[in-house]
């Protein structure tokens, strides 16, 4: 057999031709095993259109899921379809995909422009086309000023953005971002989030993973939750949140007079307990988070106590997962 050089952006077989109508990503009963460890366990999902957040703790299988979708890994069981074809066997659909890996590694010796241009040429663009597209996407992610600077001299947020730029250079229909906010400072975080939201608004299908609930919440409502390699939940974040609100919840208030404030909260029908973990802290225990949040400002003002901070200690992924797991078992 001759090496399959003919795969120049083309499928080797008609059966592998990307199907325009197919869901961009479809997984059916996909399991990925690394030796003794199960990376992904019997996951099925289909995605087409919109921004979808993939939520999960470290090791939940988010990166494994993405690597399977972009053909970096081969599924141990089940079928993975990218635009209707098997990404492990067929590089043709990559022409419509932009993938930002979690890896921090870049070619530090290249300038941002070189990096994006060189990789753009692998899509079959001419040198000029590639450069034009590279300048365009680098501008889109806000790196227009530093295109001729070496990547090694970029800040962490710039590095993340140059990775996103490289993934956008082929004007993909599907964009996969693996932990794009990891290690970004607040400013870069906002920029990246804006870019992702903008991509969603442009009608692209975007898959973005994170282990921080708040980040995903600011980007999208459509989420997939992975836990220990299993698909735990899929749907609208608000629906899940509302569900959570009806579970026991805590609100932490920092104040100079916690006892007085606590007494003021106790008459509220949804508050079933108050605690004072520290001399300047008040914890309110409730079954209905939103109704307490609504009443909170009024009660605080009425009591005349100064409140310096309000926190929801349960408003994070661990507690969300905990509740979801509780519901299942």
């Amino acid at each position: 057999m001759i090496p399959d050089m003919s795969q120049v952006g083309k499928p080797t077989d008609d059966a592998w031709a990307p199907v325009p109508e197919a869901p961009h990503v479809m997984l059916e009963g996909v399991t990925k095993v690394y030796g003794q460890v199960i990376g992904l366990n019997d996951v099925s999902l289909a995605v087409k259109g919109g921004v979808t957040g993939i939520l999960g703790m470290n090791g939940a299988g988010k990166s494994t899921l993405f690597k399977l979708i972009v053909g970096r890994l081969k599924a141990s069981q089940g079928t993975v379809r990218l635009f209707g074809t098997d990404p492990w066997k067929n590089p043709a659909p990559y022409a419509r995909v932009g993938y930002v890996s979690e890896s921090e590694q870049l070619y530090d010796w290249m300038t941002g422009l070189d990096f994006v241009t060189t990789l753009a040429r692998l899509f079959g663009y001419t040198r000029d086309e590639a450069k034009e597209r590279a300048l365009h996407v680098l501008d889109f992610v806000g790196l227009a000023d530093v295109v001729n600077k070496q990547i090694g001299k970029y800040s962490k947020g710039m590095r993340q953005r140059v990775k996103i730029a490289h993934a956008l250079v082929n004007d993909p229909d599907l964009i996969i971002l693996d932990e794009p906010l990891a290690g970004c400072d607040p400013l870069a975080r906002t920029t990246v989030m804006n870019v992702v939201r903008e991509l969603g608004a442009m009608g692209k299908t975007v898959l973005v993973s994170s282990h921080i609930l708040n980040e995903i919440e600011r980007i999208t409502e459509q989420i997939i939750i992975l836990h220990n390699g299993r698909l735990l939940a899929l749907g609208n974040l608000h629906a899940i949140r509302e569900l959570l609100d009806q579970h026991p919840h805590r609100i932490l208030l920092r104040t100079d007079n916690p006892r007085k404030l606590g007494t003021a909260f106790l008459p509220h029908s949804d508050v079933y307990g108050v605690r004072f973990p520290k001399p300047d802290e008040l914890v309110i225990e409730t079954n209905n988070l939103s109704s307490v949040h609504k009443a909170l400002p009024e009660i605080c003002i009425a009591s005349g106590v100064r409140v310096t901070a309000i926190e929801n200690p349960d408003d994070n992924l661990e507690s969300l997962l905990g509740y979801l797991m509780e519901g299942r078992s």
Binding site: P91, V97, Y99, S103, L119, L122, F123
Partner: peptide, 9 residues
């Protein structure tokens, strides 16, 4: 993956 995530064998 930078080189392989492209439509290239």
């Amino acid at each position: 993956h930078y080189l392989l995530g492209k439509p290239i064998a």
